[in-house]
Amino acid sequence: MSQIIISPNKYIQGNNELNNLYECVKTLGTKFLIIASSNGIKRTKSTIEKSFSKSNCKLVFEAFNGECSQIEIDRLKDCLKSNDCDVVIGIGGGKIFDTAKAVAYYSNTPVVIIPTIASTDAPCSALSVIYTDKGAFDKYLLLPKNPEVVLVDTSIVSKAPARLLIAGMGDALATYFEARACVNSKASTIAGGTATKAAFALAKLCYETLLKDGLKAKLSVENKISTKALENIIEANTYLSGIGFESCGLAAAHAIHNGFTILEECHNLYHGEKVAFGTIVQLVLENSPLEEIEEVINFCLNMGLPTTLKDMGITELKEKDLLEVSKASCAEGETIHNMPFEVSPEDVSAAILTADKLGNYYKNLNK
């Protein structure tokens, strides 16, 4: 099988980069559908309009309804068509990115992604995760290409709530371990081949950067200041993790995340928060060395990421619910089947309960 690495055409990161948006996208089209939350539109509209002020481009701002569902994608696709737009720009967080990418795909237009938070690795990928209107995982939409431009304004990201950056670190935490599993199993990746050495190196660098700069970045964003450590973590959460997962592969951690989305108790958690706990479960499934599991759990504890079922919002995990989560994690086509060994729902159930016990053990140890 071919070894393949894919990435956005251009990744731009820096302070006040939103001021330069027109220069970054002027070759893509002349009529831009800009998708963001209502608040996101209020915060960025004047800067964007100023950037385009000397051009003849048309800007259409449309508020996102909150869920990356097929119904919302279809609504925005109709909006793009009725306004005769030829470029889609998504501004905000992961579900907006995934929606913008899906709208662009179905409409055959370029897409530009502008994260205002660093909470997932979604910006760089040729993938949209589609949910039901009630927030349960529905399907992966594999896209034929990555975004044309990903633009990250670190002055905006540094002012976002700390929890969002931390959730991004939770998502990025899985990158190296899932990449390692996929390399060992020679699994086919989202890019359509097997991992390249370059992609795996970026996945490993992602983990190393989290360990080195994660706590410093957390403190920076809690104080609304931009530091080199924060810049490094923004790159790790967004670019290193994005290239690492897409060109190396997903495995158990994200499948277990998908399993937990069926529980209403978990719906108030961010994607990366659930993925962080899924990473611990994957390490238990692999019977990874205790030192490695301890390192990951301690990182999660320092960041405030979930290490126990209680942290996931589950005060009592009923046997029926545990079985449903485990079955969903092992559904046909799920990424858990990229592990280098067969995994059953019973294996997942045992690993979830063991991960919970380990999380509680280290939490009590650190009191």
Results as ranks from 00 to 15, higher is better:
1 M>V: 14
3 Q>M: 13
4 I>W: 04
8 P>T: 11
10 K>N: 12
10 K>T: 15
18 L>Q: 00
22 Y>K: 03
26 K>Q: 09
27 T>L: 10
32 F>S: 04
35 I>G: 06
35 I>F: 08
36 A>M: 04
37 S>L: 10
41 I>V: 11
43 R>G: 11
50 K>I: 15
50 K>L: 15
51 S>G: 14
54 K>R: 14
61 F>R: 01
64 F>E: 02
69 S>Y: 03
74 D>G: 07
82 S>K: 14
84 D>V: 15
85 C>F: 01
88 V>E: 00
95 K>R: 15
98 D>K: 06
99 T>G: 09
108 N>I: 13
111 V>I: 14
114 I>T: 09
116 T>C: 10
118 A>M: 05
123 P>I: 07
134 K>Q: 14
134 K>R: 12
135 G>Y: 08
136 A>M: 15
139 K>H: 15
144 P>H: 12
146 N>Y: 09
147 P>Y: 11
151 L>R: 05
152 V>F: 11
152 V>R: 04
153 D>A: 10
156 I>Q: 10
156 I>K: 07
163 R>A: 06
163 R>L: 06
172 A>W: 00
175 T>L: 01
176 Y>K: 09
181 A>R: 00
191 A>K: 03
197 K>H: 13
197 K>N: 13
197 K>P: 01
204 K>C: 05
206 C>W: 01
206 C>A: 07
207 Y>Q: 09
207 Y>E: 07
211 L>N: 10
215 L>Q: 08
221 V>F: 01
224 K>S: 13
224 K>A: 12
231 E>I: 03
232 N>D: 14
233 I>E: 01
238 T>W: 05
243 I>A: 05
243 I>E: 00
246 E>V: 08
250 L>K: 01
252 A>C: 09
257 H>K: 05
258 N>C: 02
262 I>A: 05
265 E>P: 00
267 H>N: 11
275 V>C: 02
276 A>E: 03
276 A>Y: 03
277 F>P: 00
277 F>M: 02
278 G>S: 11
281 V>K: 00
292 E>D: 13
296 V>M: 10
304 G>R: 02
308 T>I: 01
308 T>C: 07
308 T>R: 00
321 D>W: 10
327 K>S: 14
327 K>W: 07
330 C>R: 02
335 T>I: 09
341 F>E: 11
343 V>S: 04
345 P>F: 08
345 P>S: 12
348 V>H: 05
351 A>M: 04
353 L>D: 05
356 D>L: 00
358 L>D: 02
360 N>R: 08
364 N>K: 13
367 K>Y: 12
367 K>H: 13
